[in-house]
Design a protein around this nucleic acid. Structure first.
Lengths: 215, 215
DNA sequence: GCGGAACCGTACCGTACGGTACGCCTGCGG
DNA sequence: CCGCAGGCGTACCGTACGGTACGGTTCCGC
């Protein structure tokens, strides 16, 4: 029973959401130690119920990832009143949300799980994470970039390229290092520098693509 | 039996390397379908031998990752004759090597394996990949950046920051998308654009940190 | 109060796989 | 020719876990 790519709102009953929460907690705690027995015990439900609701282990995993991934909220920017100031603030907000998200335990766990899954010819989890992560940001950011270009606040040829540059400037090596378990990048460590990094990335992006840029 | 972080050269006999090759092939083909039985069959050796040589499954995995990761070679740059042209070419070479590496099947497999491993309180594989990937690049790149700053070819405050910006500009969202199994990023797809991306990333980096940059 | 649906808890089954034991072959030093 | 070390192949064991079955309990509609 393949779940839909898009989760609207009440795809799951409260009880089911409690189960998914338990599953996610286990995932965050134990890495992939997500066994059906453990979830059942944690959620105080029977394995039979799990199988009835989610089909099999993969279904439970998919539902969990999907449900959590959909929780990521993007900032909403008013495109009609774009000024240099508003643009900068919007970019900073995007950078801040992006950084805050990727350094979170939940995001790390979800990405790890999806990557593990992708290592087995199964791309469903990867697609969900992609769709709710990078692609969601892209969908939100590109219109803003294009509006800013129309307003002569930015210069670039391809909004796709511009988005990817922004992504790179914000994320850099932070995500891959966290995914690989780099001990020298503690969450608090990165967290403390978020504002600095956000500002730096925005400055750099504007230096490259701002109206006054010579590129 | 923890293996040393650094592999010099003949840590493994040719026969052992054949086994590791088989293990890596299985890893690339089957994702994590690396079972001891499969490796033994592929390498035409007995499981008992595997355990004698590598201790346990983790040891075999570690040896495989370590052995392969150490094969990544970094470009060597002559720091004494830095000119704007040499610097640009060096940066492009770094970008090219970095991109070429991360889009390779082997790199994707190794990173996925290490990330899966990191999802279970085990950071050994992650450390190996980090050490031979991002950190190796950093070690090589930073001296060059600093030399270029001394030669007034670059401007920046922190060479650490400069390295990370370069990394971000080169890698962007390519690696995470590949790790997540993004179908719209085929290897040939990315490969065809390497030269364009390399040039773009270098241009952008120099625009930000080149001597004439206003930042 | 009653029947049934949903669900909990637990016992159970089958399998896959990590790890071990053993029999056999080969090559080599004496 | 003998003994033995190294290694191959295979059979075997124990366990963990996915998936199923079933008895008992709660809750809801009637």
């Amino acid at each position: 029973m393949p779940l839909p790519i898009k989760i609207s709102e009440e795809t799951f009953t409260p009880r089911q959401q409690a189960v998914l929460t338990a599953a996610l907690d286990l995932l965050v705690e134990n890495g992939d130690g997500l066994t059906m027995t453990a979830v059942a015990r944690r959620a105080s439900c029977s394995k039979e119920t799990l199988y009835k609701w989610f089909g099999d282990r993969d279904g439970l995993l998919t539902a969990t990832v999907q449900w959590q991934a959909a929780k990521v909220r993007m900032p909403h920017v008013d495109r009609s009143h774009l000024s240099a100031k508003v643009l900068r603030e919007s970019l900073e907000q995007f950078a801040r949300d992006l950084l805050t998200t990727i350094i979170g335990e939940v995001s790390i766990t979800l990405n790890r799980t999806a990557i593990t899954h992708a290592a087995q010819e199964k791309d469903s989890l990867g697609n969900i994470v992609l769709e709710n992560g990078p692609m969601a940001i892209r969908r939100r950011l590109k219109p803003i970039l294009e509006a800013a270009r129309d307003a002569r606040l930015l210069r670039f040829n391809s909004s796709e390229d511009a988005y990817r540059i922004f992504f790179g400037l914000v994320v850099r090596d932070v995500q891959i290092r966290l995914l690989l378990g780099d001990k020298s990048l503690t969450q608090s460590n990165v967290e403390a520098n978020i504002e600095v990094d956000v500002k730096a990335a925005t400055d750099q992006f504007l230096a490259l693509h701002g109206a006054k840029a010579n590129t």
